[in-house]
Design a protein around this nucleic acid. Sequence first.
DNA 1: GATGAATGAGTCTTCATTCAT
DNA 2: TATGAATGAAGACTCATTCAT
Lengths: 233, 233, 233, 233
Amino acid sequence: MPGGSAILSLTLSTMNHPRWVRRKEARPAEIISAALDLFVDKGFAATRLDEVAERAGVSKGTLYLYFPSKDALFKAVVSETIVPLLRHFEQRLSASTGKASDQLRMFFAEWWSEFGCTRMSGICKVVIAESGNFPEIARFFQHEVIDLNHRLLSRIIESGIQQGEFRPMDVDAACHLVMAPLVIQAIWQHSLAACQDLVSLTDEALIRSHQDNMLRAFRADPPAPAAPSGMNI
Amino acid sequence: MPGGSAILSLTLSTMNHPRWVRRKEARPAEIISAALDLFVDKGFAATRLDEVAERAGVSKGTLYLYFPSKDALFKAVVSETIVPLLRHFEQRLSASTGKASDQLRMFFAEWWSEFGCTRMSGICKVVIAESGNFPEIARFFQHEVIDLNHRLLSRIIESGIQQGEFRPMDVDAACHLVMAPLVIQAIWQHSLAACQDLVSLTDEALIRSHQDNMLRAFRADPPAPAAPSGMNI
Amino acid sequence: MPGGSAILSLTLSTMNHPRWVRRKEARPAEIISAALDLFVDKGFAATRLDEVAERAGVSKGTLYLYFPSKDALFKAVVSETIVPLLRHFEQRLSASTGKASDQLRMFFAEWWSEFGCTRMSGICKVVIAESGNFPEIARFFQHEVIDLNHRLLSRIIESGIQQGEFRPMDVDAACHLVMAPLVIQAIWQHSLAACQDLVSLTDEALIRSHQDNMLRAFRADPPAPAAPSGMNI
Amino acid sequence: MPGGSAILSLTLSTMNHPRWVRRKEARPAEIISAALDLFVDKGFAATRLDEVAERAGVSKGTLYLYFPSKDALFKAVVSETIVPLLRHFEQRLSASTGKASDQLRMFFAEWWSEFGCTRMSGICKVVIAESGNFPEIARFFQHEVIDLNHRLLSRIIESGIQQGEFRPMDVDAACHLVMAPLVIQAIWQHSLAACQDLVSLTDEALIRSHQDNMLRAFRADPPAPAAPSGMNI
DNA sequence: GATGAATGAGTCTTCATTCAT
DNA sequence: TATGAATGAAGACTCATTCAT
């Protein structure tokens, strides 16, 4: 228990502590948060509901007041965690205008800081791992999350092409290629990261390199031999 | 084996390499093959040894003659499947000489055809998913598989830089960025692929795009008359 | 109760016998009624208190204001339901005088119409089913219900014998034999009745047949000229 | 451990006792027998599979080798126990020929000795109690058991009528009325019997009385005033 | 070596009961 | 008094593992 409230908590502990408190509103979110951590860490099957309950600070029975089964809890974790995130992400991006290359830079930055580097990106790992056992979840994830993300990104790339900033290309492929390193890096954090003993390469450096690569690969070929190069990136 | 045919079977077995002797030697591989399919499909925990035994055409007890536990079987699947593959892959690549860009093209092609598009790439998915529960496996995979692959690839890129074909760059980052789309695509096949209703973009097209991008991104800047080179990004 | 309407509801409640005051008194009966239905339908163990509460229109906690446990509720259902019934039944029968055969006819009719054909006869089924788990209930039922009924019926038969209307016989056995088809029929209604696809035989017809049989079987042998009476069986 | 076998058991115990023995053939019957006892005693829901396993001398898991669920075990108990009984009963009855009254006497005797007085008659109680929760079982019992019994009995009664031994009557009703006391008595044994402190009336006496009653009630009315009575019963 | 019957620890799930509100 | 959120003990069921055959 962090320092400052020690006196207060002492005071409280001498009062007769209720065995439990009623927190109907907060419970689902707390349970989902606990479950997210564990599902990401151990996978669906290896996560015991006992643990989820303990981490959420409730009894095992309480889980069943809010979620009818472990499966349902898993589905809730996926959808409840991802959906608000997407809203937020969409909002920030839609506000951006300007050069496609700048929008793309923003996309990289936002995607990573708002999702990739958070524990929520662990969801990707679990959904991938469990897609065979939860086809509905997989479908939901594909259509609601991935497809949306794809649309956001392809809008940026297309506008870049139309404005002559990017060379003509297969936009679908480009989207996949932009996303792949981001997703891999997100997944890596929640899996093998622990094994890379000396990581000289930080996430940020990698993403910066990737961004650099992509902008190089996308930029329109100089129209003429005497092109005023120097438009860096 | 019921009485009367003992002699016959003995006779047969001395004649033409009897099936049951070969079986005994083939058993571990058969079991591993069955387990691979199931682990990739359903994950470690959701795979029942009953199923593995059935698919391998042996009884459940027989599994324990070859593998002391489910964990051990999992570890065997990972290491036994990956190691020969790596050997094969290393061999083919080491034979190639020539321009770095050609070697890189070969890397793409081989990696995909020899590993990415096979069921073995499903191992990646499972290792990632179970890395929290099997740290040893994760470490093994990181050090034996990923690091080796990284070394192979970085050798190619480095030679490209030295030969002036590729621009100077962070080779570590470049390796990651080359691998990411390949790995993602491999994982995708074993997870969400079933949900993408109309896939206009084939794996091959995507990889081709990726290859193009990388070669574009890597190629040394033309020694333009007065280009302010060097300020990448 | 949200603030503003407190006065109003107070006003109403003092006016015309407010519903909630009556409720308080009616609660136990309402709960017992709901529980009776469910116990009869599903048995003791398979009846959930949630359901009882819902059917009684109260919350689960309220049940515990009136009954300290599920067991206690069950006991209350049995005793509270049966006792008033017995009183009523006893009253109607004790009023009857006349020929024993007429009294017996009345017994049949009353027993069926007042108990057998009502949902209360389902109690018999549940008590029988749960007698192993609730020995007290079984004893209560045996001594308070069955024995009383037995006494009422044997009084009629004995008077018939004394008046020469019925042949001499084992009165205990006769009572059992009179009751058996009535009880069976009552139990049947609450169990297998649903499976008898075409029931050509109505309850009433059956009971009429039974009554006829019993009167035939009981009637004193005619003082035939030279009948070797007395060797019954 | 009871006295006499001490030496033997000592001898045995010094030999290395197998932790379990393989008894694939005998297990289902043993489990069903154990389950029958407990279901009859405590009802379906109150019977714990732990207890069944213990009584059957197996572990809990073994139950699931033979029966996929508690429900399935219950169904097996009902059908496996009743069916062979029915076969046996049908066989014995079909052999009997002669006067309808004699056949009826045999029916009474056989029904009681082969079924009514055995623990199997407890099945009736449980099926009745659980018919709401197991409609299939109820239907099976109604159609396979009750209807068959009904057919056997009605054949006897009908032949009695045709031969002029019994008076014309509603045969369906008569069957019900013959069965009711038998069934009640069977059920009683497994429920309230424990509470009847002084039982002056034995099962046999009661059934004898019932038989007596029925034969009296069924016998054809003497055709003429000068009927040679004396056909006792 | 091979089998598969048997085991029992472990997990999800239910529900009577309690108690803060 | 009434509510219903919270509890936790209990029970059905699974499945990796063992071992008699």
